[in-house]
């Protein structure tokens, strides 16, 4: 694999890289950044030492027919995986053994999400969502949504947000009571909540972005994207929203009265459509990946189009980018099973 550094600052310095057995679809850093957990589409789990890239443990085919989703616990050494076998497994980062297996009896487990306090795990399977304790005991399950649930997320107030065709729904995380429904006739393919959880943004199948301010239920739409905006990321302050949906990274400013009536910033370095976006946990660094395997690190402090800091690439379409909790390293996953870690 070739790592090329186009910028003299060398902001992204090569750390380590390796390959897993199939398309690297999901994973993340454990809460303290010591381990990087990667799941491949064939159902393999790989836990790497974050510094050296050495394999701590690995296990193949943990889900029959493959893994679809994974979620890393925010505060402890736990993570969860979901598969095409209708099962969710809760693992310990340090050990190979399963802590808990939840069997929903069939259906694809397409989304998993830990609440921000780490007390609850939300699961989506077909049109239903389930909320479990961190130990793996069921708390509640929802009625059927309009269609298969497409995204899950948690607010800072322990509310579970779900999307499906035509709707964003907020549930009380503890009771499962519906607290808010936001409707829009469209297939919502992506979702992100602002850090204060007041704004919920969705990318839609019709190549638009739709967002609501929850406090007023006022909604707005941003159109003009040539493709589905499936990659979305807010910065830590909620001032900037980075969106994909083309070969450019489009950044909307929510400062003042924006983004309504404002023009977004267009970041142009990628040659193929954006597949994933990740703001750093702190500060204005934004990482973007595209279908051709290019990875770009941007610094948005300057608020101009010349903010590309560093450009590098992986072997194929970038599936995910994960910042280490201390933001000093970035992990990139790709379609060929490549796992690359850069120091920042």
């Amino acid at each position: 694999m070739s790592i090329m550094e186009t910028q003299p600052q060398k902001i992204l310095r090569s750390g380590w890289n390796t390959y897993v057995n199939d398309y690297a679809i999901s994973g993340g850093w454990n809460y303290n950044g010591e381990a990087l957990i990667i799941c491949d589409a064939a159902g393999g789990i790989y836990v790497f030492d974050g510094k050296s890239g050495e394999v701590i443990w690995t296990q193949r085919q943990v889900h029959e027919d493959g893994i679809l989703s994974a979620a890393i616990h925010p505060l402890t050494n736990r993570f969860a995986t979901g598969g095409q076998d209708g099962k969710i497994i809760i693992w310990n980062t340090h050990q190979k053994n399963k802590e808990k297996v939840i069997d929903l009896g069939g259906g694809w487990i397409e989304n998993l999400s830990w609440s921000q306090d780490g007390e609850m795990l939300a699961i989506s399977c077909s049109k239903t969502v389930y909320v479990y304790t961190k130990e793996g005991d069921e708390i509640w399950q929802s009625n059927n949504h309009n269609s298969t649930v497409s995204n899950l997320g948690w607010s800072i107030n322990k509310e579970l947000a779900t999307t499906c065709y035509g709707r964003v729904c907020f549930f009380d995380g503890m009771s499962g009571k519906v607290k808010q429904k936001l409707e829009w006739k469209g297939s919502l393919v992506s979702m992100v909540l602002s850090p204060n959880s007041d704004i919920v943004v969705c990318g839609s199948q019709d190549n638009t972005i739709h967002f609501w301010r929850r406090s007023t239920e006022q909604d707005s739409m941003m159109s003009g994207y040539p493709l589905k905006p499936s990659a979305l990321s807010f910065d830590e302050t909620g001032s900037y929203l980075a969106t994909g949906g083309s070969e450019e990274v489009t950044v909307w400013s929510f400062k003042g009265n924006g983004p309504e009536g404002t023009s977004p910033l267009s970041l142009k370095l990628h040659k193929k459509p954006i597949t994933t976006l990740a703001f750093a946990h702190r500060g204005m660094n934004l990482a973007s990946g595209s279908r051709d395997g290019a990875v770009v690190l941007w610094d948005l402090k300057s608020e101009n189009e010349e903010s590309g800091l560093s450009e590098t690439s992986v072997s194929d379409s970038v599936s995910k980018l994960y910042w280490r909790p201390d933001d000093k390293a970035l992990a990139g996953l790709d379609r060929q099973g490549g796992v690359t870690v850069w120091h920042v």
Binding site: E110, S126, S147, T148, S150, Y165, W184, K185, G186, S187, Q205, D206
Partner: peptide, 23 residues
């Protein structure tokens, strides 16, 4: 997979797609 027909807000019938197939 259960059939899921996704119509778009613009009302254009040629934009109607099958969500289950996309997924």
């Amino acid at each position: 997979a259960e059939e899921e027909i996704f119509e778009m807000a613009n009302g254009c019938i040629c934009c109607t797609v099958r969500g289950d197939l996309i997924r």
